[in-house]
Amino acid sequence: MTIRFAPGVRLHHDIARERWVVMAPERMFVPDETALEVLRLVDGARDAEAIIDLLAAKFAAPRAVIATDVQAMLDDLVVKGALRA
């Protein structure tokens, strides 16, 4: 299933504070480095598997390890209302 940002949610470059924030309706949160890596790959076309493949390649890490972390993170962001699966 493809992963996309929920309506009204997007990554935003906070120029004043030199960081990326997830902008959402009446909320914002600052993703940690790992979350930011994942969120940058959310383009509305990729599914979780594709995101895991890209990150496993990028960090030359065992796919199973990456998969566990990424899946947990995606689930959390879905519960927070930031992503839709």
Partner: peptide
């Protein structure tokens, strides 16, 4: 925005 605000209600 220049002051650092990201959202306006």
């Amino acid at each position: 925005a220049r002051l650092g605000c990201l959202q306006v209600h």
